[in-house]
């Protein structure tokens, strides 16, 4: 159990620090690489939560497919290495940090007021087998088959939309 805590703290620190680095680096390629590190740490945390299927999907879909798309577009556009990475408007910057701080304090306050772990029933904590591929697949192809098909259709529409948008404009 101590090992579990050590692994969680390590992964959480990696995720938090890499999230900050994503936002503060001026080179978008570095940002993208730190975002991949963040996704990898999150996949590890999903494994700690017994969500094996989601952990594998996180690595394949997010760290694999989506980030390759991001890196490809960054290479394609070759954006200039900006000197001032944050918005030049000081009002926007102040407002952003104020909003972020207020919402963060609200969330932390809410978490410590509600304290969901105290109302957890012990038998649920003993028998966490929710995340196996078998369980997810059974739910996905029986009860949630309609949203599954809708997600497939959405991906098809997105593919066609991306092709149309990025296609060279004909005169």
């Amino acid at each position: 159990m101590l090992l579990e805590v050590i692994i969680f703290i390590t992964l959480a620190l990696i995720a938090a620090v890499s999230a900050i680095l994503v936002v503060t680096r001026s080179n978008p390629v570095i940002s993208a690489l730190f975002l991949i590190l963040n996704f990898g740490a999150l996949a590890g945390i999903y494994l700690l939560l017994n969500a094996q299927f989601i952990a594998v999907a996180q690595v394949i879909v997010y760290a694999g497919a989506i980030m390759v798309l991001f890196l490809f577009v960054i290479m394609l556009l070759r954006p200039e290495n900006e000197k001032k990475i944050f918005s030049s408007n000081p009002l926007i910057k102040t407002l952003a940090f104020v909003i972020g701080g207020v919402v963060f304090i609200q969330l932390i306050y809410l978490i410590f007021i509600v304290r969901p772990s105290e109302s957890q029933s012990p038998e649920v904590a003993q028998s966490i087998q929710a995340g196996t591929v078998e369980k997810i697949g059974t739910l996905l192809f029986t009860e949630y088959i309609l949203p599954f098909e809708a997600a497939g259709f959405l991906l098809l529409a997105a593919t066609i939309g991306a092709l149309v948008l990025a296609k060279k404009k004909f005169e």
Partner: peptide
Amino acid sequence: IVGVVGVLTRRNAI
């Protein structure tokens, strides 16, 4: 929150 601050303050669309 890090994501929110990034969306509000960064200038690079990517």
